[in-house]
Structure formats: C-alpha cells, structure tokens
Computed example of a mutant assay.
Amino acid sequence: MYRHILSLATAVAILGQASASCQLSNSLKSAETTAETRKQLCMPQGEGVWTFALDVSEVAVPTFNGGAPWAGLAGYTAYIIYDNECIPRGVYGPSGNDCGTPYVIEDNFLPYVLTVKAIDTDLGGPYFKFAYANGLYSIGNNGCTCSDLSSGLEGEQGCKCAFPLEGESS
C-alpha cells in the first residue's frame, strides 16, 4: 500500500513540474522615458493598446578557427512590453530559465497575466503565441508580424503584436 501511495505521489509531482509555468522577471532597473522608433518592434496604437514584442539577434564575427566553428557567434532573445506610446515598460529574457514554455509575465503595470504559450527564436522564422486576459494572439494573426532588422554582420528580427491592456471587450 505504501509503495502505491509513494508511486502516486511521485507521478503527481512529475506532472506538476511538467505543467508548471516559467516566471520571467523584468530586467529594467528603472523606468524608460525614450520611445522605441523602430516600427518593426512597436508602432503607437492609441490609448489602452500596448505592444508585446520579440527581438531576436545574432552576430557572426569570423574567427577562422576550424576547431570552433561557432566561436564568433553571439546573440540574444528578448521579450519587450511597450505602452501605447512605445515606451518600454518591461524587458524579459528567457535565458537562464530551463523550465521552458509556457513563460509567464506578471508585472504591476499589467492588470492580467501575459502567458507566452509557444515560441520559436530561430532567426530565420521567429514566432510567438501568447494569451492575455481573454485574448489569444499569434504571429500571422491579429495583425501580428515579424520583420527584418538586420544590418552588417548582425542578423535581427523584430516581431510585434498589439493587445488591449484591459482585455478584449465582450
């Protein structure tokens, strides 16, 4: 009997970990005052409509080292929440979190939890899907788009999606 209870408890614990969400923290130490001007990441939408963005970047610097072909490759992935004037309110990075999706963003300026349900941070075709309040948003739907921001040795993609801060009207 004890073995069955222990096995059941172990199974519940494993399932609980598998469905747990990964909490992302805001890396902004102080409030930003400068608006984002790159339209690929944010475009002012009007009062009450904010933007959730994904910025993916890779820089390749030639190393001429055949033993370490990826030695000159560096990059980043960041989620950004912009207010209706495109001022960054939060910057979140999944790096260092091995818990995987869904990523959860809870912040004092958001009345609801933002949950990133699916992501692809491949520079060749980034994608995200997120839930906020009573809405579900994804690249290719709801006016959500990705655009190229690359220049020189840097490959960069910006994805953006507008969402109503107070949720969809019913």
Rank of each mutant, 00 (worst) to 15 (best):
R38S: 15
A71P: 03
Q40M: 09
S151P: 05
V104Q: 14
S95Y: 15
Y82Q: 01
T115P: 10
G152P: 04
S57C: 01
C144L: 02
E154V: 15
T10F: 10
F52E: 00
S95A: 15
G155V: 10
L8H: 03
K117Y: 08
Q45F: 02
Y79H: 07
C99G: 04
L28I: 09
G46Q: 11
D98K: 13
E156S: 13
Q40P: 11
N134T: 07
A68T: 13
L54T: 06
P69A: 00
N84F: 08
S147E: 14
N142M: 07
K117R: 13
Y92M: 02
T33W: 04
P88I: 04
G152A: 06
D107N: 07
L54H: 01
S150T: 07
A131C: 08
T63F: 05
I87C: 00
F163M: 05
F128W: 07
D55K: 11
T121L: 06
F128K: 05
L41Y: 03
S151K: 14
G67D: 10
C146Y: 01
S7G: 14
G16R: 05
S30C: 02
S151T: 15
V56Y: 02
F128S: 02
I81N: 00
D98W: 14
T63P: 07
P44C: 06
F52A: 03
P62F: 03
R3I: 03
G67I: 06
Y103I: 04
A74C: 08
D107S: 09
G124L: 10
